[in-house]
Nucleic acid binder design. Structure first.
Lengths: 226, 226
DNA sequence: TTCCATGTTAACATTCAGTTTACACAAAGT
DNA sequence: ACTTTGTGTAAACTGAATGTTAACATGGAA
């Protein structure tokens, strides 16, 4: 369907729910991880940096609300999507949850259909191009909305990977990106590609841009000249 | 945003909800009024003529559904937006609500984030309708009122989906629309159609227009050439 | 009802982005 | 000099993404 698989972390103390939900989400093409209590959820969240976290509210060793509050206080998880699973009777935590910054709620007992459509809807909402902003360095403008690079008024079209590569490097001009970093950012954490792949793309980018703005740092990586 | 502040009337018998929701909507720049039961909602609706009414379904002195039915029977409120708040998450009651003439529903417990995004989405949708003015790009004129496209004086009729597709793409020439975005804008958020459907429509449009003005950005989406 | 226009799907064809392969070359270490 | 290590470059290869066609579904009008 699209891009690289989104990572979802789901935390619930009922193994049955974990299994059913993760099965269904996986079938939808998501990369699913599970946690069986609040602390494990926190750990794995930090480890995996998921795109979406589904938190049961009633969990041992930190409730979903507590986990959410802790995560939201850290900048890394400011934009991470969070969905609460709530029992309908559980009003106290519900009201509390209103302010903790969840993005959506799903009531128990869970209908996998409902959950999945909510998950998809959330991702759809976030995926919008408008949220990405263009980068400008000298006479080079990198515009993710129009998906093209403008050099001194001349527009050039890059392929997807090429564009993502420039966008990454240009996002922090002068900073050197290790080959691993580039791989995990542009290709995703679990995609395994050969050694020369990055080089080839760097080359294509250099060719298309015409301007020499990407510097090789031998044995380290690449950087976009400031 | 822009223009004058939209008036929102929210009716619920729980003071906490009224307070939280109205606080958040006000923060978004809306002009918010409240009612604590069905009759008060009706009164204030007539008094204020709001742009949007948020109705809890379970209220004393007339339920949300009753209020909605009464309002909808009057021409004044034919175009007023209505959102239901419902504790019932089962699909049956949701469908019933929509049949009554609601524009959307939000399940309790409410996530303010969700509610606000729905509200914004609704206004956006309506705003677009009002703003439905013809788009002109080069010799191509897209007229949503007459529902036809004029290329160098020659008029051509498009089918509904075809037209909506061009209109979307042409509304922001040069901007790349992801397949997701196209799906949610043209087909709606909960309609699930196959991958190839968009392609087929794109093809039909390209055929009918004759001019090559839609570019595909592989792995990303489509855009209307500026 | 039947007819017709539109929308959707499924199946197959094609294209091109992305990757690999293979080798050339340059710099640093021995 | 020779080897090692890392990168540049061109071309071939592969498959996912898209194009295309035709058949099927649906819903409204005659």
């Amino acid at each position: 369907m699209e891009g690289k698989a989104k990572k979802i972390l789901i935390a619930d103390d009922e193994p049955d729910i974990l299994e059913i939900v993760s099965y269904n989400l996986q079938k939808e093409g998501y990369e699913v991880y599970t946690a069986k209590d609040g602390n494990e959820a926190l750990e794995k969240a930090r480890l995996l940096n998921p795109d979406l976290i589904i938190l049961d509210i009633m969990m041992p060793r930190k409730t979903g609300v507590e986990v959410c509050e802790i995560l939201r206080s850290q900048p890394t998880f400011q934009d991470t999507l969070i969905i609460f699973l709530t029992a309908m009777s559980d009003e106290a935590s519900q009201i509390k949850g209103l302010e903790t910054g969840a993005d959506d709620y799903v009531n128990k007992p869970i209908s996998t259909k409902v959950l999945i459509s909510r998950v998809n809807a959330l991702f759809r909402r976030v995926n919008h191009k408008d949220t990405e902003k263009s980068i400008r360095i000298g006479d080079i403008i990198i515009d993710p909305v129009k998906f093209l690079v403008n050099i001194k008024g001349e527009e050039m079209i890059l392929a997807k990977k090429e564009f993502e590569l420039v966008y990454l490097l240009a996002s922090r001009p002068g900073r050197v990106f290790l080959r691993n970093e580039i791989l995990s950012q542009v290709w995703g954490n679990d995609v395994i590609v050969g050694d020369r792949t990055i080089d080839v793309h760097i080359r294509k980018v250099r060719q298309k841009l015409g301007v020499d703005c990407i510097t090789t740092v031998k044995g380290v990586g690449y950087k976009f000249d400031a």
